[in-house]
Design a protein around this nucleic acid. Structure first.
Lengths: 128, 128
DNA sequence: ATTAATTGGCGAAAACTTTCGCTAATTGGG
DNA sequence: CCCAATTAGCGAAAGTTTTCGCCAATTAAT
């Protein structure tokens, strides 16, 4: 049971995290080339963002090697889960189900995907 | 098929929208008393936020009556849908299904709710 | 070694969000 | 009508996020 002050990476921070999730642990240069490609920011900006994110605990840094290597402080999954929880909280007053229904409705799921959801439902009921 | 520049109400804006969704169309005073209750802001702040939100198109205002009446520019549902889409975009690279699975896993759904999801799945397959 | 190129970081500017003081306009009661 | 109370709004302060210029440190090349 951990304290849960809502987790809020900013826009760019999230963009950066996504790059890291896609690339895996990387030096600034690589991260920058992706960020720059998508929004033309300066190298210094990328370095700074990473240092801000390091302060906030959003990324980790390995300084024993050079160039330094950055990695996300958590997985895409756990970030998604926390962000979703916040969203549900803020929009639906905590009613996760509403959200799920909307998600399902708005996606164009393949039959396999649908059956995967179904499988999960069965599993949950089984456990009950 | 409408253009979709990612929709980003800020923290307080969302809080305000939530109040409006809960209350329905309301005058500033009512909105304020709720906002103030939850975070002790000044009346002026509420008025200002609403005018900023009006500029951004997040709320509508009926000026023919007095006090003016504010209403959200869209439903809780559609906001939820857009925010979710953004989230999925930013975190999962568009893979909605991942999100749904996480949502389902992380919620403590009642049997009724689960069967509602199941019903929806059937419906979707039926339509296919 | 000395120089050139790459990498790392500070501090402050620019941009945006959130706050409120103060004033103007509107309303309701006497 | 006039006054008090409520409502609306402007403009600027305070707080955050995002940006970058400039310099220091590290690495690589001659």
């Amino acid at each position: 049971m951990v304290a849960n002050d809502s987790f809020q990476p900013t826009e760019v921070e999230l963009q950066m995290l996504r790059i890291l999730w896609d690339l895996g642990p990387s030096p600034v240069r690589d991260i920058h080339s992706h960020l720059n490609a998508s929004k033309g920011t300066n190298y210094s900006t990328t370095v700074k963002m990473l240092s801000v994110m390091l302060d906030k605990g959003l990324v980790r840094r390995d300084e024993t090697v050079s160039p330094h290597i950055y990695r996300p402080a958590f997985t895409r999954q756990s970030a998604g889960k926390r962000l979703m929880k916040d969203l549900v909280e803020k929009v639906y007053d905590g009613a996760t189900m509403s959200l799920v229904l909307h998600a399902i409705k708005s996606m164009k799921a393949s039959p396999q995907e649908l059956s995967e959801v179904r499988r999960l439902l069965d599993e949950m009921e089984g456990k009950k």
